[in-house]
Amino acid sequence: MTTSPAAATLAQPAGGPQLPESMQAVVCHGPENYVLETVAVPRPGPGEALVKVEAVGICASDLKCYHGASKFWGDENRPAWAETEVIPGHEFVGTIVELDDAAARGWGVGVGDRVVAEQIVPCEECRYCRNGQYWMCQPHDMFGFKRRNPGAMAEYMVFSSRARVHQVSADLPPAHAAFAEPLSCALHAVERAEIAFDDVVVVAGCGPIGLGMIAGAKSKNPKLVIGLDLAQDKLDLALECGADLVINIATEDAVTKIKELTDGYGADVYIEGTGHPSAVAQGLNLLRKLGTYVEYSVFGSDVTVDWSIISDDKELNVRGAHLGPHCWPAAIRMIESGRLPMEKICTHQLPLADFQQGLDLVASGKESIKVSLIP
């Protein structure tokens, strides 16, 4: 891509610093084959922006892609979706260093502004985009998985012209600002649950997504928000995020406990955010009849359950949730408000060169909550 004259004017005012020709970036060559390389700094085209990356979070889906999950690399039941020779990273924050007038007008931002972008870059042409359902775009290009939109595990990245961009406070630590992506996803799952005031809401998993789900569910003012996890430190953090009650499923039976709390009926809403197959059956069993199950997680393998619980036993409402459509402004406001204990959620910030350590920390799940890379 070539830089337009307008972009060059905005990017490099008189006496301003010149952009480097090369940068460090993590490049995916396939499952378990991610390499730190020196690559060319990308150049934005018309309507695009060049962004200096400040932080990029490592998501559970990044980890599953790294380990070769069939959702990303395909199997006998589905084609591969992820591509090789791509820079990963879809939850990020950065500062605009170059853009043209069209991009500045379209996004309402300029050089020097701190920005995030939604993880999907919609085509704006398919059936879903034309109907306003951009997060289910048929081509489904996302930053960090497709060659057309390289991600943020690099010193610089390009926001393509169809990116959905949001400005964020320059006062936030970079890792906190990048948390807008997982938090928006969590809030969308909460919206899908359609929580009512008298509901007992159970959130499975108190990792980054689950903690956001708890905060979002609490903001709906239901009767009770309950967090489930195996790790007591994560459960303690869930209480700080708004949970009324937590259950350590390593020592207590969640189904029995929740039925005791609800006169034997079960919870009204269950939001699954662990990605562990056992959490699916757990949710189906602890819900009341006519309850609502919301599935957010990306699973590394197929999950088998007794579907008769969904139909004949309970007539459950089962809903999926994907990405964070229309929830980004709320997520940014929540982070900027100081309501969440972000210092405790964003536990690890590592240099880009230590990306493998970051992946290993996320894989372990025992030492970290949110792991970010700082290019």
Rank of each mutant, 00 (worst) to 15 (best):
Y66W: 07
M157S: 13
V305P: 12
T274G: 07
A7R: 04
D75I: 06
E85N: 15
T274L: 03
L350G: 07
V201K: 02
M23S: 01
I310C: 09
H322F: 12
N131M: 07
I214L: 10
D62S: 03
V39S: 00
A154S: 11
V35D: 00
F145T: 10
H326M: 12
I214S: 05
G365P: 13
P341L: 13
E32F: 05
Y66N: 00
T95P: 02
N285L: 13
I247W: 01
D360G: 03
K218L: 05
K344F: 06
Q357I: 07
V41Q: 09
G68Y: 11
P329C: 06
E367G: 09
A11E: 13
H90P: 08
R319K: 15
K257L: 06
P20K: 00
L261T: 08
D236S: 11
A6C: 05
R333W: 08
F179P: 02
V27F: 06
L230V: 13
H188W: 09
V303A: 00
P351F: 05
S160T: 12
L245I: 04
R164D: 09
P351D: 12
W307Q: 02
L63P: 06
L340S: 12
G106Y: 05
L352C: 02
T2S: 14
S61T: 05
R130K: 12
A281N: 14
A281V: 06
F143M: 06
L50Q: 05
A82T: 01
V298A: 08
V35W: 00
G16I: 09
E48D: 09
S278N: 10
Y293K: 09
A180R: 07
A177E: 11
K370M: 10
N248C: 01
H29M: 01
V294A: 08
E83D: 03
E194L: 12
K220A: 10
E21K: 15
S70Q: 15
N77D: 14
L99H: 08
G275A: 05
L187S: 03
A193Y: 05
T95I: 13
H326L: 14
L50G: 12
V116A: 01
D199N: 06
R288H: 05
T3R: 15
E98G: 13
S372Y: 09
V121D: 00
A177H: 10
L286H: 04
M153G: 02
G365L: 02
A250I: 07
V158K: 00
F92A: 14
D62H: 04
I214N: 05
L287Q: 02
R78C: 08
I96H: 11
V202N: 02
E32N: 04
H67I: 08
A238V: 01
E118D: 12
V269M: 04
